[in-house]
Amino acid sequence: MPVLKTGVVQVMARGTDVAFVIDEKAPFDLVASELRDYLAKQNGLWSKGDITVNVGQRLLARQELAQVKAIIETHSGLKVTRFWCSPESLDGGDFHIEAKPSAARSSGSKRNTADKADKPPAHNEIVLPGEASNNPAQPSPAIVSFIEQLKARHNKNGARNRNLTEALFIKSTFRSGETVHHHGDVVVLADVNPGAEIRADGDIVVLGSLKGWVHAGASGDTKAVIVALELPSARFEIAKYQGIAPASTRRKSKSSSSGPRIAYVRNRSIHVAEFAGRFARYSKGVPYEG
């Protein structure tokens, strides 16, 4: 949920996570000055904590990353522990990527909690070691990232990363023949008609009748869910699992599809239950196994 927004710098908060998202096209000078102004204005809003800075597709030089870090840390009580950027931009970037996870971590970032240090960063995070940012000119293996490759997307950190990708809003009826693939959550403020296809790495929420084909958690996230005000669709997917409505549901589709439904993965198959909130504890619903 975005809480605050300025022109080029956006602050997102989700639960206890706070993220700074920086516009991908704005010139760096503007970003730096806006960020400084913004933090000065909001002085005292944050006490302290670790934050992640999402730079999107922008390729920042090391000095620039360090500058962003310095601005945030001096003007708020926050400590920048990670930078995040989209995976595509790492390939062509000027970052020298060394796959030495354990060594780099012990010598580099100073994380307070042991549990955090043990968690391997996701593939598209750039861990910024403390000394490197303080002294960016030093030619040391300063910025180390653990990119396994794009397939690392499928690891268990995938779920956390997608929180940082903004949701895609589709504001009119999604019609037959229309397709979309979004690396995040997708919200449709209308019906999804038969013959339409939506693929999302995150959740799919349809504030209407879901009659088309959708695939939530398309990059492998089994925690992804599909929520729809009506779910007459007989076929959809979550992560690698396929859901096919049982024949009985299909026959009396009108009565069984009334009311909001949630589809989720339980015991390696897709279940559908009456929607009772995103974080409700769902027991076994109707298995969609055909």
Partner: peptide
């Protein structure tokens, strides 16, 4: 109706 839906989508785009 299915075809009309498709066509409306194409027209809108």
């Amino acid at each position: 109706i299915r075809d009309a839906d498709r066509v409306i989508g194409l027209l809108e785009s």
